[in-house]
């Protein structure tokens, strides 16, 4: 049960609370470059999600078995050259950036080749994005986050397994897709607006992204609420066992927590929907304008 809670927290965290684009600022280049049309944006989002998952799989495997201090494979190889005690402490983390970037490049290449050969239709729809993805920071960012949770943890039992890493990668990609599709939707409407000339193009996109980011900030704190909801739902007995006073604190805090969370949800809702609504209102305004003209 703990595992499911963990997974769902990682998923919500990656997709919404710490959204790759709007909160962590990775993958801004495609976010501005490929967000003119919704279908293109969705294609890009899918391509990134796909590559990010494969890159996470490769980087988790390499980090766990080769790079992390005392990793089994590197210790085994080092065992041929040095005594067992020193071999067990071999630390290759200094190589991780080079390894990750090559893992990403290689996986992009293979995905491109595979898709081109076996699914030409799919290649036509998102193949053009693939070379762009190699220099997309979102993918390296996911790899680095996975590395931090394997190498950087205080005790080995906390190190992420493959499942957690893949969930982070997939939902990070989903978060990227959500952000870029919302942005493309807004930009399609924005084409009909009279934007001051200096702000046209990237500048207005960034300002709209700022407003979107405010909306996404409303998700902050959802994780603690979610954790509480899940823990209370699954193992209330466990809490009671830990400490009677702790439970008192929990219940006292819960009412406030719920209130604040409702607020948050409301803000988040408003933040995302408002610009869209604004766009639609403008659209309906047009016929009137034409009439007056």
């Amino acid at each position: 049960m703990n595992y499911i809670i963990d997974i769902s927290l990682i998923a919500v965290g990656a997709a919404l609370i710490n959204n790759f684009v709007l909160i962590n600022f990775v993958g801004i280049c495609p976010f501005i470059g490929v967000s003119r049309r919704v279908d293109m944006a969705f294609g890009m989002g899918c391509a990134v999600t796909f590559v990010i998952t494969i890159a996470a799989l490769i980087s988790w495997t390499i980090t766990t078995f080769v790079l992390t201090p005392g990793a089994p494979l590197s210790a085994w190889v080092a065992g041929f050259f040095m005594p067992a005690e020193t071999a067990a402490t071999v630390d290759l983390t200094v190589l991780c950036y080079i390894v990750y970037i090559f893992a990403i490049s290689a996986s992009v290449q293979f995905v491109e080749m595979y898709v081109r050969k076996y699914n030409p239709d799919l290649y036509k729809s998102f193949g053009v994005f693939l070379p762009l993805i190699t220099t997309n920071c979102a993918i390296l960012f996911a790899c680095l986050k996975i590395k931090d949770n394997i190498v950087g943890v205080d005790n080995p039992a906390d190190a992420w397994d493959l499942g957690r890493s893949l969930v982070l990668a997939i939902f990070g990609g989903v978060g990227f897709t959500i952000a870029i599709v919302i942005m493309a939707g807004i930009r399609e409407e924005l084409d009909l607006c009279d934007v001051p000339k200096p702000l046209r193009g990237a500048a207005i996109t960034l300002i709209v992204a700022g407003i979107l980011a405010m909306g996404f900030m409303g998700f902050t704190g959802v994780n603690s609420g979610l954790e509480k909801a899940l823990t209370a739902g699954t193992s209330g007995a466990e809490i009671a066992r830990v400490n009677s006073g702790l439970e008192k604190a929990l219940t006292a805090g819960k009412a406030e927590q719920a209130a604040v969370q409702n607020d948050n949800a409301a803000y988040a809702h408003k933040g995302i929907v408002d610009p869209l609504n604004a766009g639609h209102e403008r659209e309906t305004d047009f016929p009137e304008m034409e009439r007056t003209i």
Binding site: G221, V242, N243, L246, A249, L250, G253, E256, Q257
Partner: peptide
């Protein structure tokens, strides 16, 4: 910042328990 304060206290409570 009730939630932040609460989080700190719960982290302490759990660790001490």
């Amino acid at each position: 910042a009730t939630i932040s304060s609460n989080s700190v206290i719960q982290i302490i409570n759990t660790a001490l328990a």
